[in-house]
Each structure stands twice: as structure tokens, then as C-alpha cells.
């Protein structure tokens, strides 16, 4: 089964060049990609992720509102029983904010210097290590343990 990714653009900002390049790059690498389009609220993104049954949500954000968007998104995923969906991000995110985002469960932030290959490798690695299959395996192992 190919990795399924939701590429999402939260907020009012319309800078979608990066999101579209990411979507196309991941699709060309054999993943199944759904792009939300612009002006999404965190609620809309989480609903789409659950409905589309994706492995990964990729948030593209350039407006500076990442410290409000990501915490809300993570909370909604938790409430929706979908915290096994991996969340990653990219865009303009100040270096100082990256550890704070990782602390609430965002797996990776890709900056403008990341190449297409960095991104593909990163998504594959993160899904292998933290994706739903990995989560289930861990759960099974935990249950099988005496």
C-alpha cells in the first residue's frame, strides 16, 4: 500500500507554490496525495484526514500563525482518535519554534532548503518509524509481552 498523504494549507494566506510542489513531488515518488486547497481551518484539515484515511498530514504555512495552528491540529487529532496520523510541516517557521512544535508531537519541519529527495526520504522514514503500521506493531508487541 502506498503511503497516503494529505497536503494542507491552513489560514487565509494564499502562498501555495511550495504546497503544490511538495504534493507533486510526493505523488511522483509513488505516494497517494490529496491536496486540500487553500483557506482551511484545523477542523477542516482533521476532518479531511480522517475521511481520506491518510498516513500523513503535511502542513504548509507561511503566515507566521504556526504556533496557533499546530497545537490546535494536534488537539483535534487526539479528540478524533486519530493521533496515529503523522503530522509534518514546512514553510516559514522560525528555528526557535521547531523544538516547541516537536514537543507537541509534530514529527518534522522541512525548511526552504530541503530538497525533494530530502522530503521523500523524510516522509518514508517517519512513516516507517512512527506511522500507523509501526504503532500497531508496537501495540501488538506490548500485548504479546508476558
Amino acid at each position: 500500500m502506498p503511503i497516503k498523504v494529505l497536503v494542507a494549507k491552513p489560514g487565509l494566506d494564499g502562498h501555495d507554490r511550495g504546497a503544490k510542489i511538495v504534493a507533486r513531488s510526493l505523488r511522483d515518488a509513488g505516494m497517494e496525495v490529496v491536496y486540500t486547497g487553500l483557506h482551511q481551518t484545523p477542523e477542516m484539515i482533521v476532518a479531511a484526514a480522517i475521511q481520506e484515511d491518510v498516513d500523513v498530514i503535511g502542513i504548509s504555512i507561511l503566515s507566521g500563525a504556526h504556533m496557533t495552528v499546530f497545537p490546535k491540529l494536534m488537539r483535534l487529532l487526539e479528540e478524533g482518535g486519530a493521533s496515529d496520523i503523522v503530522v509534518i510541516g514546512g514553510g516559514v517557521v522560525q528555528a526557535a519554534d521547531i523544538p516547541k512544535l516537536k514537543a507537541i508531537g509534530v514529527r518534522e519541519i522541512f525548511d526552504a532548503d530541503a530538497t525533494t529527495q530530502d522530503l521523500i526520504d523524510g516522509v518514508e522514514r517517519i512513516v516507517r518509524e512512527h506511522g500507523r503500521a509501526a504503532a500497531r506493531t508496537k501495540l501488538l508487541q506490548a500485548n504479546a509481552a508476558p
Binding site: G11, L12, D13, T41, S63, G64, A65, T68
Partner: peptide, 10 residues
């Protein structure tokens, strides 16, 4: 409501 966090920012 949709303006939250964006008023006067950009």
C-alpha cells in the same frame, strides 16, 4: 473569528 491571529500582522 477567521481573523484571529492575522489582524495587522502582514
Amino acid at each position: 473569528e477567521r481573523s484571529e491571529g492575522e489582524v495587522g500582522r502582514e
